[in-house]
Simulated scan of single mutants.
Amino acid sequence: MKNVLLASDDVHTLAWMRDALSRLDVEAIEIPPAEIKARLASLNAELIVVDGGRSPEVLAGIVESSAAEGGDTHLLLVIEPEALDALRLPVRMPSDFLVRGSSAAELAARARALLWPGEEVASQEVIRVDDLTLNLATYQAYISGEALEFTYLEYALFMFLVTHPNRVYSREVLLRRVWGSDYFGGSRTVDVHVRRVRAKLGPEISRRLETVRNVGYLWRS
């Protein structure tokens, strides 16, 4: 069993973290973010899940510098949607991130990938459609074995539609589900990301990503 630290000052975020990590063979230890620097080395944790809020780089830097003093700690940052553009993950330690509002299953999948890298991915975490392979645990997509270079939001939008097939979602719903409830940009950003996703998928696969006039988008399975 591996030790995992959960660092947040928010009780609801901690409950979400606990729910996610209960699916894995780990012992979860909760600490306030302010105590990361003082306690990280002594707790001998393989992974720390940190509520980074709107300034995740600050906490990421503390974790990275503390981990450098000893141990082999990995980092999983939880961030607000508006922090995406400025996010810079540590370069000296294995790390990943996800946006607040993601499911507990997604948090568990990302934690598993950091704790047990290289393990076989569960079948339900890999979706195959024609020549397309979508790995939900590693946020990777391939067509005929060739990796697709999606940005985070392109992938998140595409993943949401593929995992909720044959149902139309309006731009407003997609903004809430993918960008988060705190996003205040215009709904046309969805159109821009859909165009980019289609261009990267190519003409054959992109036909499944349909536009429903005056309503929104759906993925046809």
Rank of each mutant, 00 (worst) to 15 (best):
E46V: 01
L47I: 09
L47Y: 08
I48C: 13
G52D: 10
G52S: 13
S55N: 15
S55Y: 14
P56I: 00
P56D: 02
E57V: 07
E57F: 01
L59A: 06
G61Y: 07
I62W: 05
V63G: 08
A67W: 09
E69T: 12
G70M: 03
G70W: 01
G71K: 02
D72E: 13
T73A: 12
H74Y: 09
L76D: 04
V78R: 01
V78S: 12
E82S: 15
L87S: 00
L87Q: 02
L87P: 06
R88K: 14
R88D: 13
L89A: 06
P90S: 03
P90F: 00
P90H: 03
P90Q: 02
V91M: 15
V91Y: 12
V91W: 14
V91P: 10
R92N: 15
R92H: 13
M93F: 09
F97L: 07
F97W: 07
L98S: 01
R100T: 09
R100Q: 13
G101C: 08
S102E: 03
A104C: 04
A105R: 10
A105W: 10
E106Y: 00
L107R: 01
L107T: 06
L107F: 00
A108F: 02
A108P: 02
A109F: 00
R110I: 08
A111S: 11
R112S: 11
R112V: 03
L114N: 04
L114P: 02
L114C: 03
W116V: 14
P117I: 10
G118D: 08
E119V: 11
E120A: 14
E120D: 13
V126K: 13
I127P: 05
I127T: 05
V129L: 05
V129I: 06
D130H: 06
D130R: 14
L132K: 00
L132N: 03
L132S: 02
T133N: 09
T133F: 03
T133Q: 13
L136G: 08
Y139D: 14
Y142F: 14
Y142S: 01
G145C: 12
L148M: 09
L148K: 07
L148W: 11
F150Q: 04
F150D: 10
T151C: 02
Y152I: 03
E154A: 06
E154L: 07
A156T: 06
A156H: 09
L157T: 11
L157P: 05
F158C: 04
F158R: 05
F158V: 05
M159V: 12
L161H: 00
L161N: 03
V162D: 07
V162R: 07
H164M: 09
N166I: 03
N166Q: 12
V168G: 11
S170G: 15
R171H: 01
V173A: 08
V173E: 15
V173R: 10
V173F: 10
L174F: 06
L175F: 13
R176I: 12
R176M: 14
R177A: 11
R177I: 00
W179F: 15
G180Q: 08
G180V: 13
G180D: 11
S181V: 14
D182T: 11
Y183D: 06
Y183M: 03
Y183E: 10
Y183Q: 04
Y183G: 01
F184M: 15
G186W: 10
S187L: 14
T189Q: 14
T189G: 08
T189C: 09
D191M: 00
D191C: 02
V192Q: 13
